[in-house]
């Protein structure tokens, strides 16, 4: 690649998740589902969670869009199983910090494969793509918490 910035954006790990997304399937026993779309570009996902005892037991998604949005949601789902709702929310916040350029967050091992997306922070118009999955997650967590307390 000619451009070092492009190089940092299109990491092999991102392309690998884009081509072979993890947890991309319908979740029959879902307790929460959130549809999130970016009307500007047409990227969309449906995130489905099975929440049990305030914990994410299972996470799956279906969707379509650019490599950044689809890889990010794929990576995200690999980190959700077994997490408490608070913990998942903390992950979403940590990732958002990384998207807004936090070097500290970019070194945080808890973000797992998601750290490969740190190059996106240098492409302001693409940050929304990377956040699509986490926006859906935060919405799902709100719904999940709401349902648990009612």
């Amino acid at each position: 690649m000619d451009s070092p910035q492009l190089n940092s954006l299109y990491q092999q790990l991102i392309l690998e998740h884009y081509r072979h997304p993890r947890n991309k399937a319908e979740l029959d026993e879902k307790t929460v589902e959130v549809h999130m779309a970016n009307p500007v570009c047409g990227d969309e996902i449906r995130l489905q969670l099975r929440i049990e005892n305030n914990e994410i037991a299972e996470a799956k998604f279906v969707g379509q869009g650019c490599s950044i949005s689809q890889a990010a949601v794929s990576m995200m789902t690999t980190l959700l199983e077994g997490r408490s709702l608070d913990d998942a929310d903390a992950l979403a916040q940590r990732f958002t910090e990384m998207m807004h350029g936090s070097q500290d967050a970019a070194k945080d091992r808890s973000l797992g494969d998601l750290r490969a997306l740190q190059g996106v922070s240098k492409f302001p118009v693409r940050i929304k793509c990377a956040l699509l999955g986490f926006d859906a997650l935060q919405e799902a967590l709100k719904k999940g918490t709401h349902e648990a307390t009612h």
Partner: peptide
């Protein structure tokens, strides 16, 4: 191929080439 139009546009932009990517208000 597999490259989403957004990715095409980002890569072209890195080369100073401005194209539109999306549904062009024509869904």
């Amino acid at each position: 191929g597999d490259a989403h139009p957004h990715d095409i546009s980002t890569i072209l932009d890195a080369h100073g080439v401005a194209v539109r990517a999306g549904h062009h208000c024509a869904q």
